Simulated assay, not measured.
Amino acid sequence: MAADWTDEENDAIVADYFSMLADDLVGRSYSKAEHNRLLQAATGRARGSIEFKHRNISAVLQALGETWIPGYKPAFNFQSSLVDVVNRWLDRHPDWLVPIARLGEGVAPAVFAEEAILWIGPPPTQTNRPPPAELEQMAAIARKYDVAERDARNRVLGSAGEERVLAHEHANLRAAGRTDLANRVRWTSHVDGDGAGYDIESFEPDGDKRLIEVKTTNGWERTPFHITRNELEVADAQCEDWRLMRLWNFSREPRAFELRPPLRAHVSLIATNFQAMIL
């Protein structure tokens, strides 16, 4: 039985993985076989072991709410130390968490093209959940590293997601022949700040209001997210109009699904902090 990978070996393969992922995201060609050969020389590990470790890294990135290399399908039951190594790499490269920085200087992100209407599919369900052991492993990692909080703090990611949904709402209404309504769509959080309980005020083609709260991640569709007490209260008070637009896979090909109140019918709400008052 092969010995566990050392921290030095994990550091080497994680750095190599992100080098390939950076090329993959901007469409630059690279050779997986050449990367594998160089790692064999550096670590003494076999080709198959390196391939499987790359798949382990994909699984860790999925759990951390990050994108991964599609050619390395996530494989679970990895060393717990691998999660620390990947997270350490992300801490040392904070610009990686800013989606625009990955596209390269001077590259215009296609995701902001106003004519592009978002792919909006059904939300995740019980029937398409991963196996329980995988889901629990990913959930434990997401809790430990507070993936939802990291996405919530990423102002560039959040603003870019809102801008992408704003473009979608404009394009969707224009495609429906409602330019009059498209011209009235309002980026509320950008103009008025975050206190409204939603980010965008838009419309259905029939004129009904859409009050959209946008939650954006580079990760997969089950990546956890934060929601504030104010947002929940507005969702309950304006349940006919309020929508949560979950935008995922943002750094590659943004996709989305919508949740309508009551949110407790769709998600498990977990209290993560408390207000303390002196007795």
Rank of each mutant, 00 (worst) to 15 (best):
E115K: 12
A133V: 13
L244S: 04
V234K: 03
N128V: 06
R153L: 14
R155N: 08
W119L: 08
P122V: 14
Q62S: 12
S268G: 13
D84L: 01
R102E: 06
I227S: 02
I117R: 15
A15E: 15
N249T: 02
D199L: 04
H226K: 12
F274V: 04
Q137R: 10
M1Y: 01
Y198A: 11
A265E: 08
R260N: 09
A46M: 11
Q79H: 13
D241M: 04
R143Y: 07
S159P: 00
A12C: 06
F257C: 02
L173V: 09
E8Y: 07
A171Q: 07
W248R: 01
I270W: 09
R92Q: 12
I50T: 02
P109C: 13
N36Q: 12
A2I: 09
H35K: 03
A3H: 15
R164M: 08
N56T: 12
E233V: 09
V185G: 03
P124K: 09
L166E: 01
V83I: 07
N172V: 02
R178K: 11
L103D: 02
L211C: 01
N273C: 15
A235I: 03
V85K: 02
H226F: 05
L82R: 08
Q40S: 13
D24K: 07
I100S: 13
G48Y: 15
R155Q: 12
